[in-house]
Design a protein around this nucleic acid. Structure first.
Length: 461
DNA sequence: GTAGGGTTAG
């Protein structure tokens, strides 16, 4: 029977049979039988209160009940209420909230399994989080408690353990989630494929791609068919290791299996190639998508733009931006920033300006960085009117000029000898509460010196 | 539940 639990696709064989042959509330008879007679009577009283129409507040205000009530009684009542896990949860919360009752770890575990078995994942996870927050609980201890309860109560599915793995992942405790997976395996339990995918992607996030590949090998050797999320984690791992041959091999494996495919898989490879300056290979992958019945996404295009910037192919990058706009995609500010910066540095200020104008039409808002970079470039080219136009435009768009913006403008005024205007802008900075750096002062000193007004320049020391 | 930047502008 235990072996059946090992395979995720067979997890539900036992439950379905059990469910129809044995009512849930009878699962825990052995646990109840252990109680002594006095306790048994008390538990029956408690059970009747929980299921009855009487007010719980009144019933539990009775000193006979409240003085006698201990965590192990609650455990028994919960076990007798497994057929209605919502009611069990209400009772558990009632005692916690209204009676400040200190529940046992066992009670938590019973409810977590009960709720998970009833597909009530949100309250089950919430309880798990509370349990984990109870302070200094070792993941092994939590697993032991959950497993102890699982065995004793003969619960249907092992979803409670999946939720434990997910709780650790949410808290960014990836190694603890792997530990729970390992402990499950030791007990011949297997998490769902979805949970495994989440663990692998969690490990990718902390760059433990070595662990991803080890776990993937284990999963496959157990005969489990990986889903697209597992493959994405593995492809990302191979890209991270710069092993593009293996990444491509993995995609081919997906293509020849019945696994669902989407553009994300290819975007991961495209990103890996771009990051390693293999952008032309990435472009070919993108061009081959149509043959596979897929279409490039906004992410595909933006990834390519950033990759093209990395190899200084700014003109091609601009072309990609135009292509995506034609297809109705909106470039990200990141793609725009990289391109503008690249074009500008190559002296192609007009192209950068034109690009900003085009993307603005489809709703992309250039960042303060883009504006400052452009203002700086047009100033250097002596196009002061354009600089002031950009400055005005920033204000209209609600972008607040910062110390860099002002220092660029003040410097440009000083260079053309318009010192009055420079001082006027310095005043604006002070009024706006922008931090004053050394740059505007240097510009003003240089400006005065240039005009031969050496005495004036001393004012700024 | 999986994909896209960054040691930027004076």
């Amino acid at each position: 029977m235990k072996l059946q639990r090992c395979h995720p696709h067979r997890l539900f064989l036992k439950p379905i049979l059990t469910f129809h042959t044995k009512p849930k509330h009878l699962y825990c008879t052995s646990a109840i039988r252990d109680s002594d007679d006095k306790d048994s009577q008390f538990i029956v009283t408690l059970k009747n209160i929980v299921r009855g129409k009487q007010s719980w507040i009144i019933a539990f205000n009775d000193p006979f009940i409240s003085n006698k009530l201990k965590p192990h009684h609650v455990e028994k009542v919960l076990l007798l209420t497994l057929d209605d896990s919502r009611l069990a949860l209400r009772f558990f919360n009632f005692l916690g909230l209204h009676k400040n009752f200190n529940h046992s770890t066992m009670s938590f575990c019973i409810l977590i399994h009960a709720l998970a078995n009833a597909n009530l994942f949100w309250p089950a996870s919430s309880l798990l989080q509370t349990l984990l927050l109870r302070g200094g609980v070792d993941p092994r201890e939590v697993f032991e408690a959950l497993h102890d309860c699982f065995k004793k109560c003969d619960f249907i599915s092992s979803l409670g353990f999946d939720l434990l793995i997910q709780s650790y992942l949410q808290e960014k405790r990836m190694f603890d989630s792997v530990l729970i997976y390992r402990l499950m395996r030791q007990c011949e339990l297997m998490p769902r494929v979805r949970t495994l995918g989440e663990v692998l992607n969690g490990l990718v996030k902390i760059r433990r791609v070595d662990m991803v590949l080890v776990l993937f090998g284990e999963i496959v050797s157990m005969g489990i068919r990986p889903d697209i999320y597992i493959y994405v984690a593995v492809i990302r791992s191979f890209c991270e290791l710069k092993n593009f041959a293996k990444a491509k091999e993995m995609i081919q494996r997906m293509e020849s299996s019945e696994c669902d495919l989407n553009v994300v898989v290819y975007n991961v490879l495209i990103h890996g190639l771009c990051k390693n300056k293999r952008v032309w290979e990435a472009v070919e992958i993108k061009n081959g998508l149509i043959q596979k019945g897929l279409t490039a996404s906004e992410v595909t295009y933006c990834t390519l733009v950033l990759g093209l910037c990395k190899v200084q192919e700014f003109e091609v990058g601009s072309g990609v931006i135009d292509e995506m706009i034609e297809l109705g995609f909106v470039p990200t500010e990141a793609a725009l920033s990289s391109l503008v910066e690249g074009l500008r540095r190559k002296g192609k200020v007009v192209d950068a300006f034109g690009l900003v104008t085009r993307v603005q039409k489809v709703g992309v808002m250039p960042s303060l960085f883009v504006y400052n970079a452009l203002i700086n470039s047009v100033c250097k080219d002596g196009k002061y009117d354009e600089a002031e136009l950009l400055f005005k435009e920033m204000g209209e768009k609600g972008l607040c000029a910062n110390d860099v913006t002002y220092s660029i403008l003040i410097d440009s005024f000083c260079r053309r000898g318009e010192l009055d205007k420079a001082i006027q802008f310095l005043g604006k900075m002070i009024v706006a509460g922008i931090k004053i750096t050394v740059y505007p002062y240097n510009s003003l000193i240089n400006g005065h010196c240039k005009l031969g007004e050496f005495e004036c320049s001393g004012v700024f020391f």
